[in-house]
Design a protein around this nucleic acid. Structure first.
Length: 804
RNA sequence: GCCGGUGUGUCGGAAUGGCAGACGAGACAGACUCAAAAUCUGUUGUCCGCAAGGGCGUGUGGGUUCAAGUCCCACCACCGGCACCA
């Protein structure tokens, strides 16, 4: 009989209390110790409470953090709340509760749930983005950006969610719909605060070489930033001015038979009096403006447009006059908002030219332009191209760029798809933008002593239908004096987007209570960069990019000491419902972590979330599979009944132990938690096969398992009187030389087919192994009467006789 | 269309070019039990065979190799992301 039942509920509460009281996981301030900074994305404390997907990445990093502590590192593993945002505000509106109260309640619930999972966060460093002591520094950073000219206000077409009544960043629009609510997104011209992330585009690409991110994260970011090399080319027009285009294919300049400008292009205004078909143009402009992004993508098959009558352009290489069109396939937001169209060598231009019956000139030989545009840069040879004829495309690109620069008709240019970050939101529950507008001085930052600029109390948080912030109705908030001239001024009423607070939170964790600075220099120099940051793939082009940008800016102004905030970035797969579908209320496949903790205990839940499959891939929840993890813990618990006095690894388990230590040690670092657990399960099976366990064996097993199942292993460690508490012990060590057995089983093949297996001494010499293999009857039968072609021996693996 | 990723038993999934299916689940059989649950033991890719044994098996088709789930080429299916970016 077991000394006691595995009463997980009692044990887990006991140890959670113990860790709390002893501040076991408090990050030390001894800066002479080696540090390890493990980070998980802090949650948005929603009203639904913790989702079953949360524990997966949290447990993973908890395992790493716990292991590193046992290895002697000073570990920082913090947690906080990304609490500004729309759902809280919407809930507040609906239920007439202040969003701050809603946030407080949600945070309390989340914290309880996280604690019930035994996650080893340093709760002394808990932060909350809605805390004025925190967002004081979010506002401070904004002011620095403003002072350096990286925050600017611009009248522009923005993405407007008709349902949330709020502006969205480009990154927040998914397939023409609002990322959050799925509502229709339309384009609306508004004056918005923008952050010049584009200024950092090149650095954001280049510095990826210095960090260890999953390759797909790097490529996604690189593709999102979308660097392209080309040239800007100036086309003179019959209006006597110049129309500049951007192209990546200046080599095809001789093939440019028309031009297209975006419907919003400013030149149209300039040419107003010269254009003879203004109605037609205006009608098209209105049509294009009404189209949402969604419509634009939907309609991308049929090219539409209007030819400008009265103005045309001159091709600078051959002086030919070519027509200019407006069409919504050219975007004002990229390049110069104007293109030279080369229908023979660009798919979109080809389609457009077919619709409008425009000439094509083949300038790169090798395709059939009657059928489709020939866009291959690698094999084509220039033709019909004057001084470029006969060159390869690559050589032609260089030559034409040189020519453009020599003649002053253009120049080399690099463009990025990345656009500046729309940073204003017309909602209540966000950081107020700390600027005032003065008639005389324009936009002025409020003095830093006045930070934090708190949110005023308002009657209603309702977003207004005219698209202004709820703060805009509050005279007492708006009216203020100009810090510059002392005259009357008005405060900015927009707030910051939810991404603001999370763009620098990893810095605040280093020194979370500092009232003087966002964090002290010493703390930042010691803890930064984050050694390992795990989070969702969905943040690759949002939070991950934004926070790299902010960190780089803070680095440039001397506030932080490293160029890149995160040394290593990994990503976890989602936990799906039992049916393999994404968990959702409507599907009825939602699993609540509280229920699982109640039914099986936190240790089982932790173990299962790690065992469920490859950490980086999605995995369906399986109610029966989790029982296997509980069963395993029960078996570990019951080992205490067969504990002997012996205090060494027994010879028959010697290599099994060393191998398992090695496997678990390495697998944790490689995110292969599932195979680490499998190895421990196999070890326990091996132990049971011997009928008993020694103290040394049990102790090692408990240490290996501790990061995964911290409560139970602490309890067993105490029950068995192994001395002290487990979390103060040292991680298990292995010796390479003891990971191998004295003998190995090798495979004997004839012509690659398995014939028999053979047990021979480890590292046996070739002739010894071959001789022994050849002595086997089955081998004899298989090779009888045949000639040996080859005899292959792979040490400790196999013997293969190739015969004919 | 472009960029990623993934295809292995009934299921989740293991396999530095070297015994495919570790570990777990499920199923089946047995032990314990009045009985059930729990637990323990065994079997469990598939086909032929009473057996010994043998054939076939990692999405499809080729190739490299003594040896391919793994490397190369072509293709198919599914998942995710981006999408008129000149």
């Amino acid at each position: 009989m077991a000394n006691s039942n595995y009463d997980y509920s009692r044990i887990e509460k006991k140890w959670q209390k113990y860790w709390d009281e002893h501040q076991t996981f408090r990050a030390g301030t001894d800066y002479s110790k080696p540090k390890f900074y493990a980070l998980v994305e802090f949650p948005y404390p929603s009203g639904q409470g913790l989702h079953i997907g949360h524990p997966r990445p949290y447990t993973a990093m908890d395992i790493v953090a716990r292991k590193r502590r046992l290895e002697g590192y000073n570990v920082l593993f913090p947690m906080g709340w990304d609490a500004f945002g729309l759902p809280t505000e919407n809930f507040a509106i609906k239920n007439k509760i202040h969003p701050a109260i809603v946030t407080e309640n949600n945070v309390r619930r989340f914290k309880e749930q996280l604690k019930s999972l035994g996650l080893s966060f340093d709760w002394d460093r808990e932060i909350n983005t809605t805390d004025p002591d925190y967002f004081k520094w979010t506002q401070w950073i904004f002011i620095q950006l403003f002072k350096k000219g990286l925050a600017y206000k611009k009248e522009m077409a923005v993405n407007w969610c008709t349902s949330c009544k709020v502006v969205l960043a480009n990154e927040e629009v998914v397939g023409g719909c609002c990322e959050r609510c799925g509502g229709e997104v339309i384009r609306k011209v508004k004056s918005q605060w923008m952050l010049k992330i584009t200024e950092y585009a090149q650095k954001l690409i280049d510095d990826l070489t210095e960090v260890d991110y999953l390759e797909k994260i790097k490529t996604t970011q690189i593709n999102w930033i979308g660097r392209s090399e080309g040239a800007e080319v100036d086309f003179e027009t019959t209006a006597g001015d110049t129309l500049t285009v951007y192209t990546t294919r200046p080599d095809t300049l001789f093939g440019a038979t028309y031009m297209v400008i975006a419907p919003e292009h400013p030149m149209l205004k300039k040419w107003e009096n010269l254009l003879t078909n203004p109605e037609e143009i205006r009608a098209y402009q209105e049509l294009a403006a009404r189209k949402s992004d969604f419509d634009r993508t939907e309609m991308n098959k049929d090219k539409t447009g209007v030819r400008l009558q009265g103005v045309s352009a001159i091709n600078p290489v051959n002086g030919k006059e070519i027509p200019i069109f407006i069409s919504d396939y050219v975007l004002m937001s990229y390049g110069t908002g104007a293109i030279m169209a080369v229908p023979a060598h660009d798919d979109r231009d080809w389609e457009f030219a077919k619709v409008f019956g425009i000439d094509m000139i083949e300038v790169v030989a090798g395709g059939n332009i009657e059928e489709c545009a020939f866009t291959d840069c690698a094999t084509g040879i220039m033709t019909n191209s004057g001084f470029l004829t006969g060159l390869s495309v690559e050589d032609a690109k260089i030559k034409i760029k040189d020519w453009l620069e020599e003649t002053g008709k253009g120049h080399r240019k690099i463009n990025y798809k990345l656009r500046d970050w729309v940073f204003s939101r017309q909602r209540y529950w966000g950081e107020p933008i700390p600027l005032v507008n003065c008639q005389k001085c324009g936009w002025v930052a409020i003095p830093e002593e006045e930070l934090p600029l708190r949110l005023p109390e308002v009657e209603s948080y309702m977003p207004t239908d005219n698209g202004e912030s709820p703060l805009s109705t509050l005279e007492s908030f708006i009216n203020t004096t100009c810090p510059c001239c002392g005259g009357a001024a008005k405060r900015e009423t927009d707030t910051m987007p939810q991404w603001a607070g999370s763009s620098w939170y990893f810095l605040r964790y280093c020194d979370p209570h500092n009232p003087e600075q966002l964090a002290s220099k010493e703390a930042l120099e010691y803890w930064m960069p984050v050694d390992w940051y795990n989070g969702g793939m969905e943040h690759t082009t949002l939070h991950l990019l934004y926070s790299r940008f902010w960190n780089k800016f803070l680095y440039d102004i001397g506030s932080v000491s490293c160029k890149e905030p995160y040394m290593r970035r990994t990503s976890h797969g989602m936990v799906l419902g039992e049916d393999g579908q994404k968990m959702s209320k409507s599907r009825g496949n939602v699993i609540n972590p509280d229920d699982v903790v109640r039914q099986y205990g936190a240790d089982t839940l932790r173990l299962y979330e790690m065992f469920i499959g490859d950490f980086e891939k999605t995995a369906p929840w399986s109610p029966s599979s989790i029982k296997g993890c509980k069963r395993f813990l029960d078996r570990v618990w019951a080992l205490q009944d067969i504990l002997t006095d012996g205090d060494v690894y027994r010879p028959e388990l010697m290599s099994a132990f060393h191998k398992t230590i090695k496997k678990v040690t390495e697998d944790i670092e490689a995110l292969k938690f599932n195979t680490a657990i499998a190895a421990m399960m196999a070890l326990v099976n091996d132990i049971y096969a011997t009928g008993s366990v020694t103290k040394a064996e049990y102790r090692t097993l408990l240490i290996l398992l501790n990061p995964f199942a911290p409560h139970m292993t602490e309890e067993l460690y105490e029950i068995c009187n192994f001395g002290g508490v487990l979390n103060q012990q040292k991680w298990a060590v292995y010796e390479e030389s003891l990971c191998v057995d004295q003998t190995v089983e090798i495979v004997v093949q004839v012509n690659g087919k398995l014939k028999t297996k053979l047990t021979i001494p480890v590292n046996a010499e070739k002739d010894v192994a071959l001789a022994q293999a050849l002595a086997e009857q089955k081998v004899q039968d298989a090779v009888a009467g045949k000639n040996f072609i080859k005899q292959i021996y792979v040490q400790n693996k196999l013997v293969n006789f190739v015969v004919k």
